[in-house]
Design a protein around this nucleic acid. Structure first.
Lengths: 158, 158
DNA sequence: GTTTTATCGTTTCAAATGAAACGTTGTAAT
DNA sequence: ATTACAACGTTTCATTTGAAACGATAAAAC
């Protein structure tokens, strides 16, 4: 009597595949066009939301581990896209922000990312989009209860 | 004029985080309780669906690359959970199937995985679950159009 | 004020990853 | 038949990974 575990109706499995496909499709874009790796893009996009941010702020917002953030930040600084300054009141913290060049790149990248997403979401009606957000919200909240807070989430493509 | 890219309403980003959380929560379970790594679990669960399967069948069904499948299969065979036999008509193919021990483990693991999923999905009504599947289906189909078929999808937790 | 204790970011190092090369076997072309 | 070509699974190797150790700074305890 085989237990009825059908993988293509098993949420973790399907969610993983969908997430990977979406990530890969998008990543291909900004890798080829802007030379940004996945971790770099994530750090970059996060800074697009709010500035300045410390490395640790980015760790919290992106669910990446701090070693990865550190490396991505270094590459971005090296590429002249970010400014890294010491925090005035706490020498342990970094104040990360876009450089002029970074700001310019962001102005290019962000609209493209949005356009790409819009294209993807175009298969859904407005109502369906709202549903999707609501459903994901519920699931995320539920699953968060099982994870000891502040567990670093390992990688995957984005 | 900053482009309006809000990360927490950006589908690739949220999908990735949700997927990682779900994967991590589940992975923690079967790692601790059954000693299965993520790739191992995936191969194992895939064989739970259908047997026998070649390594390549598993590659197709799981979207893992073949090196990873090869390694996971080796560990599972080494652990005595799988039988690996040469295909009678095509010496290139492997016929992978559960060993007695593997079958017994599966009988333990599968119900737990299902129970865990049920617990996760308990925050949704039946109607919402149907919606979720439908929405994911649409998105996956849409995004698949952008990916050159047979591109191997990189990893993430499951 | 001195001594823990905690936090931030980097670095180290062993393990995992995946693209490409490989050996082997099967298939198609001639 | 022989020769090209393709498919399967393993192995190699350079890169990426993340857990843990680390140095430096700040906060808390005493």
């Amino acid at each position: 009597m085989p237990p009825d575990l059908r993988l293509n109706r098993f949420l973790p499995y399907r969610l993983n595949i969908l997430s990977k496909k979406v990530s890969l499709a998008l990543a291909t874009r900004y890798q080829e066009r802007f030379g940004l790796s996945i971790p770099e893009w994530r750090v970059f996009a996060t800074l697009g939301q709010e500035q300045p941010l410390s490395s640790n702020d980015i760790v919290e917002r992106t669910a990446m581990d701090k070693a990865k953030v550190s490396r991505a930040v270094n590459r971005l600084v090296g590429a002249g896209l970010l400014d890294r300054q010491p925090h005035p009141h706490d020498q342990r913290l970094l104040r990360l922000s876009f450089s002029r060049k970074g700001r310019e790149l962001y102005a290019q990248v962000a609209p493209e990312a949005l356009a790409w997403e819009a294209q993807l979401l175009s298969v859904l009606t407005d109502a369906e989009r709202d549903q999707l957000w609501a459903l994901m919200e519920k699931l995320e909240q539920r699953v968060a209860e099982e994870i000891p807070a502040s567990t670093p989430l390992s990688d995957g493509l984005d």
